[in-house]
């Protein structure tokens, strides 16, 4: 479903993605972890072309993402994206946030878009907050709205960029619960996160990155209990003692 072929990217001199080859199949849940600056966020941001790549190819559903002729609007409608900092639109209500894309990208009628938006809000358990403004919500609630916003175009793929890193500890659970529910519906997901519990519970595969390279991949149990490389072992011991 998603395929990276020899992908390379530089920020100036910094080689942020170094010969990435990766295949993600339909329904797979992939957790990506690694120290900060390892290129893990960049990796998933390339999938919907928030970042450009300089070499190689990324193919999503048979569409070459970084081709000039690709219809980005259509592509991005298939991919939901959730940011670390939520990035809800502060001047719109929760419902308006979720409805914006269906009305303006899919050109749905307002009533229809509202129906879908409310469905998605129910899915994240926030129907009663639909007329609130983002600033009136807790961080956890804001992130759940952001997930609903990502789901509203009925995407086949969901990308999460450290969805719980900006949250207070007591709010992490509610967001992870929503994500676990998504997994059970068979959603294809790429999640950049250090939440080991989440990875062990639902991930099919864990991918460890360092300095722009994929250092190690494996099943969650394998990876966390018997890391093959020293770097991965060191990293795991750090997040455990943290």
């Amino acid at each position: 479903m998603i395929e990276f072929k020899n992908v390379n990217k530089w920020f100036g001199k910094l080689h942020v993605l170094n010969n990435i080859d990766l295949k993600i199949s339909k329904g797979e849940v992939l957790v990506i972890c690694g120290p900060s600056g390892s290129g893990k966020s960049t990796l998933i941001r390339c999938i919907n072309r928030l970042e450009k790549i300089q070499k190689g190819e990324i193919i999503v559903n048979n569409t070459p993402v970084h081709d000039k002729h690709t219809n980005l609007t259509k592509l991005r409608a298939q991919i939901g994206f959730v940011f670390q900092q939520f990035h809800l639109y502060p001047h719109m209500t929760v419902l308006q946030n979720v409805m914006l894309a269906p009305v303006n990208v899919k050109k749905l009628a307002k009533s229809e878009a509202e129906k879908i938006a409310l469905e998605k809000l129910e899915q994240v358990g926030l129907t009663e907050k639909s007329s609130a403004y983002p600033a009136q919500l807790s961080g956890g609630q804001q992130q759940r709205v952001a997930i609903a916003r990502g789901l509203t175009m009925s995407p086949e793929i969901m990308l999460f960029d450290e969805p719980t890193s900006a949250l207070d500890p007591e709010m992490i659970g509610e967001v992870l619960d929503v994500m676990v529910n998504l997994v059970s519906e068979g959603m294809t997901m790429c999640v950049v996160t250090h939440e080991m519990g989440f990875a062990k519970k639902v991930a099919h595969r864990v991918l460890f990155m360092d300095e722009g390279k994929i250092v190690e991949t494996g099943t969650p149990d394998d990876f966390f209990d018997n890391p093959k490389t020293d770097r991965a072992a060191e990293f795991i011991s750090k997040i455990l003692t943290h």
């Binding site: 919907n48 991005r76 994206f81 940011f83 639109y89 001047h91 894309a101 303006n104 175009m153």
Partner: peptide, 30 residues
């Protein structure tokens, strides 16, 4: 207006004018 706002709009598939009209300008107006 924070760059993340633009990215969120981009990720939802809004085009340049839609991002300007629905996300940037209303916030810039404030």
């Amino acid at each position: 207006v924070d760059d993340g706002q633009l990215e969120a709009g981009t990720a939802s598939g809004l085009n340049y004018f839609q991002r300007m009209r629905f996300i940037i300008l209303p916030q810039a107006l404030g």
